[in-house]
């Protein structure tokens, strides 16, 4: 199971990097979304993927699932959500102001002198 998830994480990273290297701003945003998903999956895998009891003291179970990675992922997901929303609005505004969704067209503005 760990191996499978690790491969998935690697695949997600590869796709995210591919998307982030493209010139279209929307693809870059999708790339940032994918890269944070990959990081979250990795975090979950790092805590160990095992089935077992909830981590309460004194329950006498042999295998606990570690709750900490899940808490971290939850925090990180919320932050990632906020950033993606902001980035989408920014992209829309940039598209309106600069008249293009292609990053290459942003070069050489009149304001740069």
């Amino acid at each position: 199971m760990e191996l499978l998830i690790s491969l998935l994480v690697g695949f997600l990273f590869a796709s995210a990097v591919y998307l982030m290297l493209s010139r279209n701003i929307l693809r870059i945003i999708v790339g940032t979304g994918l890269i944070s998903h990959a990081a979250h999956l990795l975090l979950m895998t790092m805590g160990g993927l095992k089935r077992g009891a909830t981590p309460f003291l004194g329950q006498g179970a042999t295998a606990y699932t570690d709750p900490l990675p899940h808490a971290l992922i939850l925090t990180s997901i919320v932050i990632g959500f906020g950033v993606t929303a902001f980035l989408l609005v920014l992209a829309y505004r940039a598209y309106n102001e600069l008249g293009s969704a292609d990053i290459n067209d942003y070069r050489g503005l009149a304001e740069d002198e």
Partner: peptide
């Protein structure tokens, strides 16, 4: 923002490792 999102993702990974 793109740079910082990338570095945040790396931060989460580093913490995980």
């Amino acid at each position: 923002i793109a740079i910082n999102v990338l570095s945040s993702a790396l931060f989460v990974m580093a913490v995980g490792y």
